[in-house]
């Protein structure tokens, strides 16, 4: 008998729980979605914002840049996020989708830069790479080393074969999987950068853009490039265990683990805070966030959050985001985006 009573009680309570669904009339906190690369920076701002103002701490979801735009562009209203972070610029197709769903006015804010490091264990010799070396070592198809405009499947097994100046060591690179924004940026900046150094391939860009992109962005699949998952900490640990391997990951992870791994110089430039900031380090990309203008006076704290993020103490040269490994923009650029934010200038594409 007891059990029946208990069951009935539990059932009633649970039906209450389902019945008591509040209409989502209001939301008292900002909802942020988007890139996992911007996540460590956005969360720092969010935490400060929550502690120093009377507003509730915003919620930051790590959905990836693409996933963020999908949620962001789904519509206007409290059920949809207010801000999306991105480790690349919004695509035209995404912008159009936003427009179609009634998200007409979007404010674009660039927050700074992120470098991509290519590092190996401290126990091994330091690498000094050219972009062309990276392309030849990691692309699926490469120009025939015998010369001519012929493509062959990547024949290189060791770094020395790629470039006689490099050590005689098996090519073994741990990097992010295709779902990662870091991988996209690596392919675009490093591989394409090396790819372009072949004149006839650069000429191909004008004739057949698709084939050019396929050639320059496709990474080999014969085991030389190992997809090590989205977790950059894991790559650092694997590099420590295997001193023959190189790893590809975000600069902030290199910065935090300088006692374990060393960054290779690219085109003779070391991955340093300063070299990424002044643009001399070739593999770096801008980071953004996008704001839904229609939400600004609806969700409490939006304006204050924007001014916190764009304050000098956050994104400035000595701001707390720089302490976390975000590379600040030059002063002029900061000023431009600050005025965009103040005037809530809508993005046009």
């Amino acid at each position: 008998m007891k059990i029946i009573k208990l069951l009935v009680l539990v059932l009633t309570v649970s039906s209450f729980a389902i019945g008591a669904v509040p209409a989502q009339a209001a939301r008292d906190h900002i909802s942020i979605v988007g890139s996992s690369t911007v996540y460590p920076f956005a969360t720092v701002v969010v935490e400060r914002f929550g502690k120093t103002t009377s507003f509730k701490t915003p919620k930051v979801e790590s959905t990836g840049s693409g996933g963020g735009f999908k949620l962001f562009c789904a519509g206007v209203g409290v059920g949809h996020p207010d801000i999306t972070n991105a480790s690349r610029r919004i695509k035209k197709s995404e912008y159009e989708k936003c427009q179609k769903n009634g998200v007409r006015e979007i404010v674009e804010v660039k927050i700074g830069y992120d470098g991509i490091a290519i590092a190996n264990s401290k126990k091994a010799a330091k690498f000094s790479l050219e972009l062309r070396d990276l392309f030849l070592a990691l692309a699926k198809n490469v120009p025939d080393p015998k010369g001519g405009e012929q493509l062959i499947e990547n024949p290189y097994k060791t770094w020395k074969e790629v470039n006689p100046k490099l050590p005689n060591q098996k090519i073994e690179v741990l990097g992010p999987p295709p779902t990662s924004g870091t991988r996209d940026a690596f392919a675009e900046l490093a591989l394409e950068g090396g790819c372009k150094t072949f004149k006839w391939i650069a000429a191909m860009k004008k004739k057949d853009k698709k084939a050019y992109k396929r050639l320059c962005h496709t990474i080999r699949e014969d085991g030389a490039y190992i997809e090590a998952g989205e977790n950059d900490n894991l790559i650092v640990q694997k590099l420590q265990a295997n001193s023959n391997a190189l790893g590809v990951f975000g600069f902030s992870f290199l910065d935090q683990n300088l006692d374990k791994v060393q960054g290779s110089s690219i085109k003779g430039v070391k991955p340093r805070f300063e070299s990424i900031a002044d643009g001399s380090y070739p593999i770096s990309r801008p980071l953004y966030f996008y704001v839904k203008k229609a939400h600004i006076n609806v969700i409490p704290g939006m304006k204050e959050y924007l001014s916190e993020f764009t304050s000098e103490k956050a994104w400035g040269d000595e701001g707390y985001l720089a302490d976390r490994g975000l590379i600040p923009m030059p002063k002029m650029e900061r000023r431009k985006f600050l005025s965009d934010v103040k005037g809530l200038k809508a993005l046009k594409m």
């Binding site: 996540y39 969010v46 929550g50 701490t57 919620k59 790590s62």
Partner: peptide
């Protein structure tokens, strides 16, 4: 469903983030 998120405030009920 959005539960992989950075949430500082401790939830007090089943409708909080």
């Amino acid at each position: 469903i959005g539960m992989v998120a950075f949430i500082v405030d401790i939830p007090g009920g089943i409708f909080d983030s």
